[in-house]
């Protein structure tokens, strides 16, 4: 299966159509539609409870869908789960670790039930890959959170899957470990592994993902390439010493500015369609400009799209 995919460059490895999960009367996931191409790294963004984990669990076959379908490598996740799971590596939000086993025993068990070709070799390879060599003989129960997270990632990689679904892979990791995992994910994607990951760390998405899907209340509120999302608008935050009366109007008259909000104490927020920092600075300098905050990152877009509930 993996081989077949590799030959068809540019194929959509993950296709999700109208995927819905309803609990009682609330839709945790509400008619999602998205696609992921082979070798792509896509980030899921959303506040807690937005439906990211539910979507990922459905893709991984841990949860059934109320409605809609999901194809991975052209195979329906719900119709033929076994074939899909063979080529899928999944790291749940809480790494599913048997703490009474050593790292090596645990990974060997995972390699076997996931159908790795040479289980023992696969375990040693993945131990080296996620830097677990020093703790391979230790009981998982005795490991720190960072190491446990890495064992969780190793578990997802041990059978060399062609699709990786990682639910907050960097949670519990220190900044250095985050960079390691980021590099690892990039290497895997370069080797044509398709990666879907969710994270709370926005800079990580910006550094790692080519495309983001922002989910809010079970619906996709935006999905695009990161640079395109940035183009959704920018905002400038400024502080002036003498907030003169007509400053707001004058800022509003700057070409490209959409909205000016007076936040009090001489602080203004300017939302715009293009980068207006130079023009805004020129206008505000008369009012005694003290500070000028730069263009917005993903965080602002995220907050704007999700109603600032983060």
């Amino acid at each position: 299966m993996a081989k077949g995919l590799r030959r068809n460059h540019g194929i959509r490895v993950i296709q999700v159509e109208q995927l819905t999960k309803v609990y009682g009367s609330t839709a945790a996931v509400d008619h999602l539609d998205f696609q992921v191409a082979r070798g792509e790294i896509v980030g899921f963004l959303g506040v807690n409870g937005a439906g990211k984990s539910t979507t990922m669990r459905m893709l991984a076959g841990a949860l059934g869908a109320t409605h809609g379908r999901a194809l991975i490598g052209g195979i329906d996740v719900f119709q033929n789960p076994r074939a899909v799971k063979q080529m899928l590596g999944y790291l749940p939000e809480f790494p599913p670790l048997y703490v009474d086993m050593t790292v090596r025993e645990y990974l060997l068990f995972c390699a076997r039930i996931k159908g790795a070709k040479r289980p023992r070799e696969a375990v040693e390879r993945v131990i080296a890959q996620v830097a677990l060599t020093g703790v391979a003989h230790r009981l998982i129960d005795h490991l720190s959170k960072g190491y446990r997270q890495r064992v969780g990632i190793a578990q997802a990689l041990v059978h060399e899957p062609s699709v990786l679904i990682l639910d907050e892979p960097s949670s519990g990791l220190d900044p250095a470990q985050r960079v390691e995992i980021r590099t690892l994910v990039q290497e895997l994607a370069a080797g044509d592994v398709t990666v879907v990951l969710s994270t709370h760390v926005l800079p990580e998405v910006e550094a790692l993902c080519e495309r983001v899907i922002i989910i809010h209340q079970g619906r996709i509120v935006a999905q695009d390439r990161i640079d395109a999302l940035r183009g959704l608008g920018t905002s400038v935050r400024l502080r002036v010493a003498r907030p003169v009366d007509d400053l707001r109007a004058r800022l509003g008259a700057v070409p490209g500015v959409r909205e000016v909000t007076d936040l009090g104490d001489g602080v203004f927020s300017v939302a715009a369609e293009i980068d207006v920092r130079t023009e805004v600075a020129r206008v505000a300098v008369d009012a005694g400009l003290l500070e000028l905050g730069g263009s917005r990152g993903l965080e602002d877009i995220f907050l704007q799209l999700t109603g600032g509930a983060a």
Binding site: R82, A83, I113, Q155
Partner: peptide, 14 residues
Amino acid sequence: RSRTLELLLTSPVS
């Protein structure tokens, strides 16, 4: 309790 069932449910085993 330890949410390890997820491992079995998402592995290619019935």
